[in-house]
């Protein structure tokens, strides 16, 4: 708010009216919008506590009595405990793999000079044009041929090489002042030591941001697990939703359980977003 005491009155009036009451409208609008955004999930959470009878009463939007019962049923009878574990393992493997491989690759691309360096970088970037749907058929065939279907290896390997991560880390490394790098060179420090003791500590924010983004996108992956996993016990949580939605006698889905499953599956990425939002925002928004 500008210092209104030094500004002539007519201007004061205009500033106050354009900023004063419009703030009220702004906040009101925002609260309304946010309520709309949250409403469906809030309802889902409420429904996840109801008994099946209650959930079929359309006008019953009040918390029910079956919270513990619903969630334990979903976790154990419907195997969501197992599915979520699978999702965690998948996410962990993918994240660790992506981080290690991309950091190494970015180091090579920034701190070395060799023939075809640009070409290799563009070859990596070019893979952005090859999202899963464009390669899914042969990928499936490949996994079938090498016997990796239905395994963690098959589930995770298509995701580990990441052009985006390489691109982001390369950009991050390039922003480190040349004099810091030259100081290390003058001391004869080797590349791995340099990566571990200098580059990674100086890139913590971006690493955290990339990790958060990767967790969310890996956890939320649907199509590839659907295709690559055959035994239900090996399946990830997202596809588990498909299972639980299809249960129940014809036309009689236990929606309270489905909602509970949905809430369960939502929680981990939501927590990651909330905890790491600063890093995620600066990585995506570009340094703020």
């Amino acid at each position: 708010m500008p210092d209104v005491s030094i500004v002539p009155d007519t201007v004061n009036e205009r500033l106050l009216t354009t900023t004063g009451d419009s703030q009220l409208a702004t906040h009101a609008a925002l609260w309304l919008i946010i309520s709309v955004l949250i409403l469906p999930i809030a309802l889902a959470a409420v429904y996840s506590t109801q008994t099946t009878n209650a959930v079929y009463q359309i006008t019953n939007v009040f918390p029910g009595s079956a919270l513990v019962e619903n969630y334990t049923t979903v976790l154990f009878e419907y195997n969501f405990g197992q599915y979520m574990w699978n999702s965690f393992v998948m996410a962990t493997v993918v994240i660790v793999g992506k981080l290690v491989f991309s950091l190494l690759a970015a180091t090579a691309l920034v701190y070395y000079d060799f023939r075809f360096q640009s070409l290799i970088f563009y070859a990596i970037l070019f893979t952005l044009l090859m999202p899963l749907p464009v390669r899914i058929v042969p990928l499936y065939q490949l996994m079938a041929d090498i016997g990796w279907l239905n395994s963690f290896a098959g589930l995770t390997s298509p995701f580990i090489a990441s052009a985006t991560a390489v691109f982001l880390f390369r950009q991050q490394f390039r922003s480190i002042p040349a004099s810091v790098v030259e100081t290390a060179k003058l001391d004869g420090i080797g590349p791995i030591q340099f990566l571990i003791n200098v580059l990674i500590p100086m890139s913590k924010g971006m690493i955290a941001g990339v990790t958060a983004i990767m967790f969310i996108s890996t956890w939320n992956a649907y199509l590839w697990p659907l295709v690559a996993i055959i035994d239900r016990t090996n399946q990830v949580a997202q596809v588990g939703l498909r299972y639980i939605q299809g249960t129940g006698a014809e036309g009689f889905v236990q929606w309270n359980l489905v909602m509970a499953a949905g809430i369960l599956v939502l929680i981990p990425p939501l927590i990651v977003l909330l905890v790491a939002r600063r890093y995620l925002l600066s990585t995506l928004g570009g340094g703020e």
């Binding site: 004099s179 030259e182 100081t183 290390a184 003058l186 001391d187 004869g188 420090i189 500590p201 100086m202």
Partner: peptide
């Protein structure tokens, strides 16, 4: 460079921001 017996000081100090002064001096 590391075998020439030279030490260099830069205009922008070139300190590792995540290390203490002590560690900055001894690293390498």
């Amino acid at each position: 460079p590391k075998d020439r017996g030279v030490a260099m000081v830069f205009q922008d100090y070139a300190l590792y921001p995540h290390m203490t002064a002590r560690r900055n001096m001894t690293f390498g």
